[in-house]
């Protein structure tokens, strides 16, 4: 009984506390660097598209709002022919970023994506691809992958020995 009265009093005192509300459009909220907002596609340090069209983000997506189709350039480097995110379905869970083996897809601190027309929520690759590395610097997937692409031959990756001559029987 007493505790009820006490809580009445304590709650009453909250009338005079500082407000927590942020008056949003006039006053901007602080977004942490790891805030999960708008999705972008980043580039590697050499300026190449990081996305290798492995489809893992699409598979991880619980609302299945990512669609892409793989294609290859003349050097054997795979990239998405199109990459589409239907943000009207996206729940910003960040699973795609977690699934991405190349740090290509990233969620960035930006949530101001509202549109009057739902159709405008469908982002294509040109809307997603940025010119930088995003949150993760210095990583270049093709430097650690075993395949050869233009500008990186077999044995030139990190932690790789030079190619073997199969006609050689020496130990």
């Amino acid at each position: 009984m007493l505790s009820l009265i006490k809580s009445l009093w304590l709650v009453f005192l909250h009338l005079f506390r500082k407000r927590f509300t942020i008056q949003y459009p006039e006053e901007k909220a602080y977004l942490a660097p790891r805030y999960r907002g708008r999705i972008i596609l980043s580039r590697d340090p050499d300026g190449g598209e990081r996305c290798v069209a492995c489809y893992l983000c699409a598979a991880a997506c619980p609302v299945e709002c990512i669609a892409l189709d793989a294609t290859e350039d003349e050097n054997g480097r795979r990239y998405p022919d199109f990459f589409r995110i239907n943000f009207s379905r996206c729940i910003y869970c960040g699973y795609c970023e977690e699934a991405c083996p190349t740090y290509a897809i990233q969620l960035v601190p930006d949530f101001e994506m509202a549109e009057y027309n739902r159709q405008n929520m469908v982002y294509e690759k040109e809307d997603l691809l940025i010119d930088g590395e995003g949150k993760y610097h210095g990583y270049n997937y093709y430097k650690v992958a075993g395949i050869a692409i233009g500008g990186k031959d077999k044995g030139e990756g990190e932690n790789e020995s030079s190619p073997i001559d199969p006609k050689d029987l020496m130990p």
């Binding site: 699409a58 997506c61 669609a67 239907n86």
Partner: peptide, 13 residues
């Protein structure tokens, strides 16, 4: 199967 809500969304959302 992935992309169910996105495959045709460029045509109509």
């Amino acid at each position: 199967f992935s992309g169910r809500t996105s495959i045709l969304s460029h045509l109509s959302v």
